[in-house]
Design a protein around this nucleic acid. Structure first.
Length: 604
RNA sequence: GGGGUCGUAGCUCAAUUUGGUUAGAGUACCGGACUGUCGAUCCGGGUGUUGCGGGUUCAAGUCCCGUCGACCCCGCCA
């Protein structure tokens, strides 16, 4: 076999007159009857190789049969192209290789789609032939950048004395959080491991063990429905530190992102990142992961709504709901149909309607204006900073519906009015979340972050352990969490918390979440035990690597930054997993299936 | 579990609104010509289970029902 001497685009003008061997894929071919040109491609790019029958009849014959994606090695003399044949479009356009020896290393079938970024291909085909899809520049680039990003995260964490420590992939299932992927144990019939939703408890145990600083770039698994930014297996940059508080986390994380983005993407990110309380972002933006690349803000008018004769407003106020509005500069030009579309958009989030008022030359215009006394209308406009040419959208309902629908409407309008600066990287922290919320389905309190999060009594007051335990017993819903989310461009990049490191406080927290003593022992006994043997104060955070890459590479989905992603139904179209297993395998695992097999004869 | 968009040639799409002759285009592919192209060009070739199954009709790519698949969203995702 001809041995490669240089990559395609490593052949330079200084190599002119030298003999070189280049290898790669036939990207395209142009047969002029006499001379044949082939664009040879490897991961670095393209170089033109020329087959001239006057140089080698044999090579020319072989070249005549070459087609797209055949794999070849060619040996030849690097030559300067004549002035009129220079191709300025490619970096190697000044030169070409005049072939005197060729080896067809592998013939390719006609590919199902062209390996070309210009041609857009359906995702179904791309995923089925992922190895061809990944030959394309964009995906090749994404996967290579993924490597660079991971490398720089590791460099930063290694330099800052974090230890990369592995945690089990097969571990104990716990009912908190997302649905687990289960792995049956053959040697323990009827028992199951769970794949980790995150290495949470293990990294805390590592802190108890005295490792001080831990990190892992680690796969996590959650058996929930997929989205463009959610896959059943995804990668987290997972960190934990001892003897620290929130400020230490913010500091190291900000410096980490600033460094990685500078090194890999050559962009400057300003630190420190702005911080917002949960209350603040909900009031102003309706979502706990606001996109602050644009300024639209919500305005509360609950107090004014009662002073109107608009029944929807009045009834909402009576039922302890809230009324908020969103002023959209220049929004008065929206057509009736466009507003109707927005109305059906907010209905997704449970909104029963969407009231609006356009501020025209003649003043406020809408079917609802007649129900709003003029001074009230003026006050609303003042508060919302509404001017001529704007439109005001109103939502009156229970808080969750108002936040959800206006928060998402805000993002939708930013898209419609093209308010988003795509080059901006808008990081922000959200902190001071409530510790718990009431779950109507479960009929109990659940932890908003996770049950190991250290509570605090008020926004700026952690409170003594005695106070916290008292409140956990009496009014757990009043407590805040020592947790924090990092948001980038309206997407939750990651989150973490300062953890509970006292056994007693952890037990009281479990208890407030409705766990009986036996359940605690059974599910979290080893953690409680560990906390009993001198656990240091500690805390940490984890980030979605896939989401980070999706945002930095401006891709529409994390599927485009994952080498082998799964479809919306969690299927790998290339390997056809998941698939059925043999009776023998099931029997070994003591598993019987409770599903009816499709009968191929049963056709009606 | 629910809502929506889509499924036609290897690929990307048209024809569906208003059911009506032999389902078209670009590209890929196949054959031929051509010694300087680089999105080569020129001549010739359509390679199709209109996702699948059923129904309505004189007639279905088009209408109806079911089903499968891809994508987006709600629920879900501590």
């Amino acid at each position: 076999m001809l041995k490669r001497t240089k990559l395609c685009t490593e052949v330079k003008e200084k190599d002119i007159d030298k003999t070189m061997v280049v290898c790669g894929w036939v990207h395209s071919w142009r047969d002029h009857g006499g001379v044949i040109f082939i664009d040879l491609r490897d991961y670095t790019g393209i170089i033109q190789v020329v087959f001239n029958p006057e140089i080698s009849k044999e090579c020319h014959d072989v070249a005549g049969k070459l087609r797209s994606e055949d794999v070849i090695a060619v040996k030849g003399i690097v030559s300067k192209r004549s002035d009129e044949t220079i191709n300025p479009k490619i970096p190697t356009g000044m030169i070409e290789v005049k072939v005197n020896e060729v080896e067809l290393l592998n013939k390719s079938l006609t590919p199902p789609f062209e390996i070309d970024d210009q041609v857009n291909v359906g995702e179904e085909h791309r995923l089925q032939y992922r190895y061809l899809d990944m030959r394309r520049n964009q995906i090749q680039h994404n996967i290579r950048m993924r490597h660079e990003v991971v490398k720089e995260f590791r460099n930063f964490l290694n330099d800052n004395h974090f230890l990369d420590i592995e945690t089990p992939i097969m571990n104990k299932s716990t009912p908190e959080g997302a649905r687990d992927f289960l792995v049956p144990s053959r040697v323990n019939p009827g028992k199951f491991y769970a794949l980790p939703q995150s290495p949470q408890i293990f990294k805390q145990i590592l802190m108890v063990a005295g490792f001080d600083k831990y990190y892992q770039i680690v796969r996590c698994f959650r058996d929930e429905d997929l989205r463009k930014d959610r896959q059943p297996e995804f990668t987290q940059i997972d960190m934990e530190m001892s003897f620290i508080d929130e400020e230490d986390i913010y500091g190291v994380v900000e410096e980490m992102f600033r460094t990685v983005i500078k090194k890999v993407f050559h962009k400057n990110v300003k630190t420190p990142f702005p911080r917002y309380t949960y209350r603040e972002v909900m009031d102003k933006y309706g979502l706990d992961k606001p996109d602050l690349r644009y300024a639209l803000e919500l305005t509360d008018i609950t107090d004014l709504a009662g002073k109107t004769d608009f029944m929807v407003f009045k009834e909402t106020v009576e039922k302890k709901g809230i009324v908020k509005c969103l002023n959209v500069p220049g929004g008065a030009k929206l057509s009736r149909k466009e507003i109707d579309d927005l109305t059906s958009f907010v209905s997704i989030f449970g909104a029963k309607g969407l009231a609006w008022i356009k501020i025209t030359d003649k003043g406020p215009e809408s079917v609802v204006v007649k129900f709003i006394p003029e001074p009230v209308m003026k006050e609303i406009m003042d508060r919302a900073k509404s001017r001529k040419g704007d439109v005001l959208f109103f939502m009156a309902d229970q808080p969750q519906v108002v936040y959800d629908s206006l928060g998402n409407l805000r993002n939708k309008l930013a898209e419609i009015f093209k308010l988003i600066d795509e080059d901006q990287l808008n990081f922000l922290w959200v902190h001071n979340f409530p510790l718990m919320e009431y779950d109507k389905v479960e009929n109990r309190l659940t932890a908003i972050h996770h049950p190991f999060t250290h509570p605090k009594r008020a926004l700026d007051d952690i409170g003594s352990e005695k106070d916290l335990i008292k409140t956990l017993k009496e009014n757990p819903q009043d407590l805040f969490a020592r947790s924090y989310d990092l948001v980038l461009n309206g997407i939750e990049l990651g989150g973490g918390s300062i953890r509970i490191h006292h056994r007693k406080l952890q037990e009281e927290t479990f208890s407030a979440l409705g766990l009986k003593e036996e359940q605690m022992k059974d599910q979290f006994g080893f953690l409680l035990d560990a906390l009993s043997y001198g656990a240091p104060p500690h805390g940490g955070i984890a980030f979605g690597l896939d989401r980070f890459l999706m945002l930095l590479l401006k891709q529409g989905s994390i599927r485009d930054v994952i080498p082998f992603p799964k479809t919306q139904k969690a299927v790998c179209l290339m390997s056809d997993s998941p698939s059925e297993v043999s009776e023998k395998q099931l029997k070994e695992l003591s598993i019987k299936l409770d599903i009816l097999k499709a009968d191929p004869d049963q056709r009606s």
